[in-house]
Amino acid sequence: GFDFTPATLPEQSFTDAIDDNHSDGQLLLMRAMIAAAYADGHIDETERQKIFAQVETMQLSVQEKAMLFDELRKPMQLSELVAAVPNAQMGIEVYAASASAIDLNQTVSKHYLDTLANQLCIPSELVMSIHRELNT
């Protein structure tokens, strides 16, 4: 688990993680979104289009784009995703990206998010706060 110390994460660290010079952070969030979209066992055409549109807005190398398209064929398992999260702040962003990509009307998708929050050690109050921001 992470050492969760509230009020010690500066805003800059959140935006740095996904700015153009930190494509590792962007890639991790994209991989999280793909894994979340796949939580119900398939990625439908709407989800695929959303992901493609997102990838096009990112400044990625040809290799990085190829990696994401491979990822669409074989999304990460939840355990792999959790293992790839380097710190608590990225954990929050990974959860927010996942929650924004997932269809919350599906029980299996809700369960996926619950498990993700649990494994990333995100407190339930913070989970609720993220959903308030997302309007979900």
């Binding site: 009020a7 996904i18 962007q26 702040q89 962003e93 913070l126 921001e133």
Partner: peptide, 18 residues
């Protein structure tokens, strides 16, 4: 994705101020 970063920060800030 920039939106996700801003949103995560706002959610975290709200949480930490509770």
């Amino acid at each position: 994705l920039a939106a996700v970063g801003g949103l995560a920060w706002k959610a975290y800030k709200q949480y930490s101020e509770q």
